[in-house]
Structures are given as structure tokens and as C-alpha cells.
Computed example of a mutant assay.
Amino acid sequence: MKADTVTSQIPPDTRTRNKKPASGGRFWRSFKNQKYLWMMSIPFVIWAFVFSYLPLWGWTMAFQKYKPARGFFEQEWVGFEHFKTLFSDSQFLLALRNTLAMSGMGLVAGFIFPITFAILLNEVRLGFFKRFAQTVSYLPHFVSWVVAAGIVTKMLSGENGLVNDILLGIGFIDAPIQFMAQGHLFWGIVTLSDVWKETGWNAIIYLAAIAGIGPELYEAARVDGASRLRQVWHITLPGIRPTITVLLIMSVGNLLNIGFEKQFLLGNNLVTDYSQVLDLYSLKYGLGMARYSYGTAINIFNSVISVILLFTINGIFKRTTKESLL
């Protein structure tokens, strides 16, 4: 009785206002208020569906003995036979080793050099030199790997190569080194080539993140007597940590998807055991030999491992730094 009395004393508009709307009602209310944003997103949703999700139907080829002349229901289903062949092939394991090695080296160098370059560039006070350094560092990014590989090969050439000429000139070596014929040097050559080509471009996002740090923090640090190195350590690096975290998670998720352009253009028959990566292996033993089902199995392996790595590293960062991408 008392409960009914209390309820009756609550104004009707208050009871209606406190009542939570249904989830369907919230959706349509949001759609009505943001209808133009929804309409703008429709083309991108269609694009993602057509080019990212619809092709997943082709993964069924990995479980078939695919023949292009046959229809879908006429294909011979073989289950996981191609995956068994894949994991028992020594060339696949070799390509996996090379991919992980070059990806790991590129991941480390691809973070250390751009972050260091962005911090050093931010500390430059001479405007003309800063703009000049930025422009020069960006330029290699716009050069195709065909041209970049030609430049690297020429610089490392044993005959009149710039690197060998310098080493001979300072007396560091007695005879030219055939860099491009040394398999154990190939991973380092690819990593350094990528650093030279992409450091300036990758530093842009870190420069933007540094620009977003409040100048009053640096002013307070200077008043307290902090040196420029201390300001970098205690203000700049913590300020760009969220950016570093997001990019690191995305990079680890793409650890196996390093492409094949660098390895294909810089490699040769003398360094095949060090230059063959998973994408090259898929191209050679899948598409090149018309083993379409086998090539699809390789790509499925890449995708599954990439998803596992993405969720794993995201979970680690979420537990340790409370920052995540997903």
C-alpha cells in the first residue's frame, strides 16, 4: 500500500523520463539524428564487404583439389590435405623462418629509427634546416621499390660501389665485399634499405603526436631545471606512448604480411635460402605452378596467424598498459 502511495506521488513525466528506451528505439533515434553520417558511411561499408569479406568465399579452394574448368559443386574436396603438405614442406619452413626474421628486424628498426628521428627533428630550432631535413627524409618513400632496389644494388656493388669505395678508402677492408652474394647479410640489407626508404615517412605520425603535447609541460620542466634529455624522457616519450602502442599492435598483427617486393628485387639465386618469404613462396609454388588450392592454404595460414597475433598483443597491452586497439 505504501509502495503504491509513493509511486502515485511521482510525477508522470518523471516516470516516463526514467524509463529506459528499448534498444531498437535507441538505434532508430540515433539513426534519425545521424542519418547523414550513416549515408556517408554506406559506400565504405559496401567497399569493405565487396573487397574484404566477399573474397573470403575463395578460401573454400584450400579444402578442394581446385580445377578452374569445374564448377563449385564439381570440385573434389580433400579436407586438410593441402595444410598437411604445407607443414611438411621444408621450403615452407624456410620461408617462414625468413619471414619471421625479416619481420622482427623490420619491426624493431621500424620503431626505433622513426621515433628517434622524430624526437631529434622536434628538438631542432633552426626552421630552415628542419624543413629541409623533413623534405629530404620523405623523398625515398615516393620512390618505387624497383628504383630503390637498383640504387641499393649499385651502392653495394663490388665494382665501383659507393660502400666498397668508402671502406677501401679508409682502409677498413683490403678487397671489395660482394654484399649481394652473401646470404647471411641479406636480412640486414633488406632491413636497412627499408629504414632508409620509410623512416622519414613513418616519422610524420610521431611528429604530429609530439605537436599535440602541451607546451606548458615543457615550460614547467625548464623552470624545474630539467635538461632537454630529461624533457624528452619524462614528457615527449610518455606523450606519444598511446600512438606507439597503437602502431605497435597493428605492426605485430601484420608480422607475416611483409610483402615480397623488397626480397624479390634485392634477391638473387645466391641468396635464395635467405630471401624467400611466404608471399614469394605462395607466388612460386601456388600461382606459378597452378596449385591454386595450395596457394590459398598458404594465405589462410598467414591470415589466421595475423589475427592470433593481433588479439594476443592487444590483450597483453590491455592488461599491462590499459591501452588497446580493439
Rank of each mutant, 00 (worst) to 15 (best):
161 G>F: 09
96 L>Y: 03
1 M>A: 14
37 L>C: 02
115 I>V: 07
299 N>H: 00
50 V>A: 09
154 K>A: 09
36 Y>N: 15
172 F>A: 15
310 L>W: 05
143 V>Q: 13
62 A>G: 09
46 I>F: 12
8 S>L: 03
3 A>P: 10
138 Y>T: 06
58 G>C: 12
217 L>Q: 10
93 L>R: 15
138 Y>A: 07
255 L>G: 08
199 T>L: 04
245 T>Q: 02
141 H>P: 14
75 Q>L: 01
283 L>M: 15
268 N>Q: 12
55 P>H: 08
38 W>G: 04
154 K>E: 09
190 V>W: 04
257 N>W: 05
249 I>F: 01
313 I>P: 09
76 E>T: 01
50 V>F: 07
10 I>W: 02
261 E>N: 09
315 G>I: 10
114 P>R: 04
207 L>M: 12
312 T>H: 14
50 V>K: 05
207 L>G: 11
52 S>K: 15
61 M>I: 00
152 V>L: 14
99 T>N: 13
264 F>Q: 14
314 N>V: 00
204 I>D: 09
184 H>V: 10
111 F>H: 04
251 S>R: 13
7 T>V: 00
209 A>H: 03
27 F>D: 08
44 F>K: 07
83 F>Q: 02
311 F>R: 07
70 R>N: 13
114 P>I: 03
231 Q>I: 01
139 L>H: 02
58 G>Q: 15
47 W>A: 13
193 S>C: 15
137 S>C: 10
96 L>W: 03
112 I>V: 13
154 K>V: 05
101 A>N: 10
227 S>N: 01
11 P>C: 00
57 W>Q: 08
75 Q>H: 03
152 V>Y: 12
134 Q>S: 04
268 N>M: 11
320 T>Y: 04
146 V>A: 07
102 M>N: 01
299 N>R: 00
317 F>D: 08
37 L>H: 05
246 V>N: 12
125 R>E: 15
132 F>W: 03
8 S>H: 03
